[in-house]
Nucleic acid binder design. Structure first.
Length: 817
RNA sequence: GCCGGGAUGGCGGAACUGGUAGACGCGCUGGAUUCAAAAUCCAGUUUCUUCGGAAGUGUCGGUUCGAUUCCGACUCUCGGUACCA
């Protein structure tokens, strides 16, 4: 064994051994319990960042730990390779997105290998290859025929100067990020997936996801947003038209003082023809951003359309306003407004002098002052004619019955979730496999013609997608009538690719089918690890895709992911590491200087996985120092010569204590890594063990045997985290087999039993003393011992004992007064 | 705005089920070693203190024998908000 720890040398050697022996190749084996461990695949942006290092280290630790538990582990890796940054890089560097992406993948693959992650590289995939995306094109055409996809117009951000569609991210304060022109909303035809049809399923099956963090399930539940309410029709005065609205508060129906419609609502557009003020307002609304955040935080504005509507119950006439806070794409594009009982309506009514009519009064002692704010609680009805006196709950039914009987509306379950718009007007994505024919309409590309390949040798200059000006791409014959037709030139949202890659990893080499029987062997994913930022969108789309694939007979099972771990961000100086802030730390420098094991150890030690992690150069040195100490401890032990077998019956008290510490550590490591995923406390436990061992200066034959055991446990339990150094140390400790094939050791329970334990003694809840008692002492004797304790008695002088609380194994609290 | 998190020494964090607040690491202080330094090793390290103790987990209030942990109100901060991934 070498005297000094030389990470660069041993890590490359051990990595070569793993590669040559193909230990991480996953082969289906029905005789072993399977374990599918998946970390969210990266976007190949150029180089790994610390967030990746953290994500993939967590995954690798769990995978290696499960392997030691005897599981047949699948841990794959691939590339989420389509996306916007490739186009931006293409414009900047004049390199085609494909070339840029493949170069990045090559570089980043090397980085991952240098970190020693145990991936099955045979299953590697990149979503930008036709071998991958052809299958989502294929699935899309099946869903098209099933009626689960459809086309409708929807708004996009349009930069009138660059003549291009902008992502929300590229709109800064309502202006284009590159040319600063004011961005407009533009309505264009786009493809949608009917995710709302699966909303009840997506909601219900959240109950199955016991291995998911509660917060993620709650966020998804709120995002889906099931509500029960009433669809109601308001007829327009002097017209055949009517406005449909949806409300979850029918009890407030008598308090409606106006209706609000979206600026792009057909009735508003028609009314604007001879109303210049309304026309100006509609034009102004065109310059709003499309994001919900911008919409909700913008000042609420509106204009009277001049139209009026008839209240379906009272027959009263109410005005119709056009308002900037009503979304045309959401629901019916119209809402009823009850200023007395909705805060947003209240503020709008105050600003525009609209009436505020109270129809609900508090049923209890809640505060209600309509001079200050709306009363939004439920209560009792008033000013509501025949419904007066009903509770909000009873009024819901009564008013629903009334409206239904009079054919003015019906009960309705609604979801906040909207259908998924999958069209993108970008180049670097999966071509949507549809052909538009003047005669036949939208026609799916026949299966035999798939994949629709994306031309890769192109120039991207920021003036829109190059395939939109490539006749050789879009000019085709209609598959149905054979006439001249045009291919769809939009591409899929990149969430499309990431929604099913977890399944494709199980059979990435199948060129005949999207998935095969191996999908059912490996799925569901036993552990998925990724950033909390994906809590709703990516994870909801993946769940949706799984149900789509299930209903196509491609997978069985309702849910794709059994256990989810959401990791926090990596920060420096309290903020997210980013290029623009110039506070990034390149993993390359870290590995070159300290090695992969130190990088892995630091990042797992600095914080528990769910929390954000503060970067610290000094703490990295600390991690490196610990590994040097570990190396030295093994070196000195090995140099001290032969070790005899441990004889448990012949140990001194100190030797027993050391053994006890070793076994406690083993137990804690298994629990911390396997169940709690608190790798930071696991590492702290090994550090404690090593600190104890440093103080254990017993060179007798049995002392050396005890030390041998402690070092073996330290090396084995640390090996999922720092696998390279542990591999070498394990062999130095006299073992011939390779560490990756060694099982997790069993705890020797007999070493954990204690005769005496220490109890805290409190007086009135404050710690005053400690007593030693037998582990099986009864309550009465513990009470007596505590009350007789000298230090405790000082605080009891002149007072009477009111109560004594004994918490077994923990403390005694004497309450005096 | 809305939905979901977070806040504990000088710093990262620990305290798992309401029961010893500050494990482990970093930093700092003192010592050993060294011609000297680096590295390494040992000891100490929440604050205040009349050395008896007292205070202390973002703020204010509550429940309890006992609250970092449970409840209510708030402040700041982070993630998401449907075209960043």
């Amino acid at each position: 064994m070498q005297q000094d720890y030389n990470p660069a040398e041993i890590e490359l050697e051990v990595q070569k051994l793993w590669k040559d022996s193909t230990v991480f190749r996953a082969v289906e084996d029905p005789s072993k319990e399977k374990y599918y461990c998946l970390a969210m695949f990266p976007y190949p942006s150029g180089q790994l960042h610390m967030g990746h290092v953290r994500n993939y280290t967590i995954g690798d630790v769990i995978a290696r730990f499960q392997r030691m538990q005897g599981k047949n582990v699948l841990q794959p890796m691939g590339w989420d390779a389509f996306g916007l940054p490739a186009e931006n890089a293409a414009i900047k560097n004049k390199v085609p997105p494909a070339a840029w992406t493949y170069d990045n993948i090559d570089y980043m693959r090397d980085q991952l290998q240098r970190l020693g992650f145990g991936y099955d590289w045979d299953r590697e995939l990149a979503t930008c290859t036709p071998e991958y995306y052809r299958w989502e094109q294929w699935l899309f055409t099946r869903l098209f025929k099933k009626g689960l996809v459809y086309k409708k117009t929807a708004a996009v951000n349009w930069c009138p100067v660059d003549n291009t569609v902008l992502a929300n991210e590229q709109v800064i304060d309502g202006c284009c990020w590159r040319c600063d022109a004011v961005v407009e909303k533009r309505e264009i035809p786009q493809w949608f997936m009917k995710i709302t049809e699966y909303a009840p399923d997506l909601l219900k099956d959240l109950d199955q996801l016991e291995g998911w963090p509660e917060q993620v399930r709650t966020m998804q539940e709120n995002w889906i947003g099931r509500s029960e309410g009433l669809d109601i029709q308001f007829d327009i005065v002097a017209s055949d038209e009517s406005i449909g609205i949806y409300t979850t508060r029918p009890d407030t129906l008598m308090g409606v003082s106006y209706l609000a419609v979206a600026a792009e609502h057909p009735l508003a557009l028609a009314a604007a023809e001879n109303n210049p003020t309304l026309m100006d307002f509609i034009a102004e609304c065109k310059q709003m951003e499309t994001s919900e955040e911008a919409l909700e935080t913008a000042e609420k504005k509106g204009v009277d359309t001049g139209l009026t509507a008839i209240h379906p119950v009272t027959g009263d006439v109410v005005p119709v306003w056009a308002a900037n806070f009503v979304l045309m794409n959401y629901g019916t594009g119209a809402v009823m407004s009850v200023p007395a009982h909705d805060q947003r309506d209240y503020e709008f009514a105050k600003a525009y002098g609209l009436p505020i009519k109270q129809v609900i009064e508090p049923a209890g002692s809640e505060e209600c002052d309509l001079g200050k704010a709306a009363f939004t609680e439920k209560g009792k009805l008033l000013n509501s004619g025949e419904f007066d006196g009903l509770t909000s709950a009873d009024a819901f039914g009564a008013i629903a019955d009334f409206v239904e009987k009079n054919n003015k509306g019906q009960r309705q379950v609604n979801y906040r979730l909207r259908d998924w718009g999958v069209s993108r007007q970008r180049y670097w994505g999966t071509p949507i496999p549809i052909i538009n024919c003047e005669k036949c309409g939208s026609v799916a590309v026949p299966e035999a013609d798939l994949p629709v390949r994306l031309p890769e040798n192109v120039i991207v200059d920021g003036s829109g997608s190059p395939i939109k000006s490539m006749p050789e791409f879009y000019k085709v014959a209609c598959p149905t009538c054979g006439g001249a037709a045009e291919r769809e030139t939009d591409t899929f949202d990149t969430f499309f690719e990431s929604s099913w890659y977890y399944a494709r990893f199980t059979c990435a080499d199948n060129n005949e089918a999207m998935l095969d029987e191996r999908a059912d062997h490996w799925l569901p994913v036993d552990q998925y690890i990724g950033g909390i930022e994906h809590a709703v969108l990516h994870l909801l789309y993946a769940r949706f895709f799984h149900k789509l694939m299930r209903d196509e007979g491609l997978v069985s099972g309702d849910e794709p992911i059994k256990n989810l771990l959401t990791q926090g961000m990596v920060l420096k100086e309290g903020t997210k590491m980013s290029k623009s802030k110039g506070n990034t730390v390149d993993p390359k420098g870290l590995i070159d200087q300290y090695g992969a094991d130190t990088a892995r150890l630091f990042i797992m030690f600095a914080a528990p996985p769910e929390q954000s992690l503060e970067w610290s150069d000094k703490a990295v040195e600390g991690a490196s120092r610990f590994l040097k100490r570990l190396w030295k401890a093994v070196y000195e032990h090995v140099e001290a010569g032969e070790v005899i077998a441990l004889d448990k019956s012949a140990l001194s008290d100190e030797q027993q204590d050391m053994r006890s510490k070793t076994q406690q550590t083993l137990q804690k490591m298994g629990d911390d890594i396997g169940r709690r995923h608190t790798f930071n406390t696991a590492i702290a436990a090994v550090m404690e063990l090593m600190n104890s061992l440093a103080k254990f200066e017993d060179d007798s034959p049995q002392g050396k045997a005890v030390r041998q055991e402690a070092l073996e446990i330290a090396v084995l339990t640390l090996s999922p985290i720092t696998p390279h150094i542990c591999h070498v140390l394990w062999q130095a400790l006299g073992h011939n087999e390779v560490l990756v094939s060694v099982s997790w050791p069993d705890v020797d329970e007999s070493a954990l039993v204690q005769d005496n334990i220490e109890l805290m003694v409190q007086v009135n809840g404050k710690l005053r003393s400690k007593i030693k008692v037998a582990v099986d002492a009864d309550k009465a004797s513990i009470e007596a011992l505590a009350c007789a304790d000298e230090a405790a008695q000082k605080f009891m002088e002149g007072k009477t004992i009111r109560k004594v609380i004994v918490v077994p194994g923990r403390l005694v609290n004497i309450v005096v007064g």
